[in-house]
Amino acid sequence: MEFSPFNNVIKLCLQGMSLEENNKPDEAAGLFMQAWEEATNDHEKFLAAHYVSRHQKTVSEKLKWLETALENALKINDDTVKSALPSLYANIAQCYEDSGNAEKAKENSELALELKNNPSDKGPFYHGTKADLQVGDVLTAGGNSNYKSEFKMNHIYFTALVNGAGLAAALAKGDGKERVYIVEPTGNYENDPNLTDKKFPGNPTRSYRSESPLKIIGEAAEWVRPGTEELQKFREKLEDSKGEIIN
């Protein structure tokens, strides 16, 4: 299922999250339950159950809804959903720990760690920048941020969505041409924690980071460039950042 704000279940979840942010948890819980009741496929049921679980009053009820979310997630062969599994298993582990079941807590914690360290997404991957690079060059961590030159980057970031890399290129500092390179990770990589599970479970933007270099293996010719207004909103967010969303 394509992630779309026009999908009614996703729309209800978005409205519920807005109510959460405005400190209206009971109203939010009602919308999440409505989303569950209107869900018609595994993806919608996975999303709705995830949000319903957050508003349960007891550990046993929270565990029931988390396991319902997991049950539906496991039926879906989609990297944006698979990326939610580490968080789901970690939350389930916490429920078992809180209820005194150390064996089940350990089992689920180990699953969470294994999946976190082995993302299922195999790309292709992209990196957006204004730097003029060549096939065979490598991108390494430790340089200055593309967005705030005062920050040193501990990781190198990339995405499996070409339009996401195009946005990164548009936001990058400098006057050079916007470039989107096709890259190949040379070591382990993980879901970008600045985005993963912040709002929707998993990694719907398919964004990753690595401490190991990325090798440039090609260049993308086409992507959807963001509009002026959209670009300005992202620039304002970066200006307000103290580094936590870009490093």
Rank of each mutant, 00 (worst) to 15 (best):
K122D: 01
T205H: 12
G30E: 11
N118P: 02
L115M: 15
I156A: 08
L171H: 02
Y89E: 01
L85R: 08
D192M: 02
Q56N: 07
R206Q: 11
N101I: 01
L115Y: 10
A112Q: 10
E110N: 12
A168Y: 09
V180P: 00
E239C: 01
E219H: 10
E236Y: 03
P25V: 09
F151I: 00
T186N: 06
Q134T: 14
P86Q: 12
K116Y: 15
E37D: 13
L14F: 11
Q94D: 09
A49Q: 07
Q15E: 12
E44M: 06
S87D: 04
T186I: 06
G164D: 02
Q134E: 09
T140Y: 03
K24Q: 10
R54P: 00
K62N: 01
E67R: 15
K148P: 00
A221S: 13
A112N: 10
I217D: 07
G218P: 04
I76N: 10
N117G: 05
G16F: 05
N203S: 08
L133F: 06
A105C: 08
P185I: 12
G143K: 15
K177P: 00
N154C: 03
L238D: 03
N72Q: 12
D240C: 05
G227L: 08
P185G: 09
G136A: 04
T196M: 05
E37N: 15
A90M: 07
K177M: 03
P25Q: 12
F234H: 15
I10E: 05
N77Y: 05
M153V: 01
E61C: 04
P193D: 13
N191L: 07
N8M: 07
E21R: 12
I246H: 14
G227C: 09
G164V: 04
I246M: 14
L195R: 06
P201M: 04
G143Y: 04
S145N: 10
N108S: 06
I156V: 15
G174D: 04
D197V: 08
Y157V: 09
H127C: 06
N144A: 14
V135C: 08
E222T: 13
P226N: 14
E103P: 00
N8G: 02
L66D: 03
N91W: 10
E150K: 15
K45D: 00
A102W: 07
N163V: 05
G136V: 06
A168C: 10
T196G: 01
D26M: 13
I92L: 05
L161T: 07
I245T: 15
P119N: 07
D192W: 02
L111W: 07
Q134F: 07
E229F: 10
T40W: 04
K122V: 02
S53M: 04
S210A: 13
N247L: 03
N191F: 05
H50G: 01
N22W: 02
L47K: 04
V138F: 12
A39P: 09
H50M: 05
E2V: 11
F3N: 10
L85F: 06
E67P: 02
L161Y: 04
L238T: 10
V183F: 11
F158D: 01
E178I: 00
L133I: 07
A131V: 09
H55K: 11
A131K: 15
S18I: 01
T129S: 14
S207P: 02
V224L: 10
M153S: 10
K75G: 04
Q15A: 14
P5T: 06
Y147R: 12
L167G: 02
K199T: 14
R54C: 02
N101C: 08
